[in-house]
């Protein structure tokens, strides 16, 4: 950088930032008198997490349904492919190929307005329920047998309502 630029930088540095007002300085130094391990107060983020307790049973039911579906098809796929242990301890390869997924489809069925809800914090939210039907198809490539399944599903959204 040339000499002129250095001079310009020096002339800028000659200006000192205005001092922090005493009242503000005191307020900020007081912050350090509290124990930081107690976590963030509500206004700074942690308190903004809203818990929708009334949705817990719905979420639990959905989780059980998904888990049960997964277990069912896992068992179905493995039931004929579990290697049978021979007396001498050798593991045999499966004799039949498992079912393979050949088709999956998510069909939108409709949407319903569920009206307004109030959260525990008295925040108004709009409930919207989307309905789908999920279809799956598996085929056994060896014997051509087919398994088809259609599961209705719903997704429930709570949308914040603008009030200001």
């Amino acid at each position: 950088m040339d000499h002129e630029a250095d001079n310009f930088e020096s002339s800028l540095r000659a200006f000192s930032p205005a001092k922090v007002p005493d009242a503000l300085q005191s307020r900020i130094l007081e912050i350090a008198d509290n124990n930081p391990e107690k976590g963030l107060p509500a206004a700074t983020g942690a308190g903004n997490i809203r818990k929708f307790h009334f949705l817990s049973p719905l979420a639990a039911a959905a989780a059980i349904l998904i888990a049960a579906t997964g277990v069912f098809f896992a068992v179905l796929n493995n039931i004929e492919t579990i290697p049978s242990a021979k007396p001498d301890g050798m593991v045999m390869l499966p004799e039949k190929a498992p079912f393979v997924p050949v088709h999956a489809e998510n069909i939108f069925e409709g949407v319903h307005d569920e009206g307004l809800f109030l959260t525990d914090d008295k925040v108004p939210v709009q409930g919207v329920r989307y309905q789908f039907s999920d279809s799956f198809k598996w085929r056994n490539p060896q014997d051509g047998s087919v398994i088809e399944m259609t599961i209705p599903s719903e997704r429930f959204f709570l949308l914040p309502v603008q009030t200001d």
Binding site: V20, P21, L24, R27, I28, I31, A32, N34, P36, K38, G39, L40, P41, T44, G45
Partner: peptide
Amino acid sequence: AQDVLQDAMLRLWKSYS
């Protein structure tokens, strides 16, 4: 500016000390 400085210092004290 004063609000922002105070808010930022509060966050830093709580989260990054």
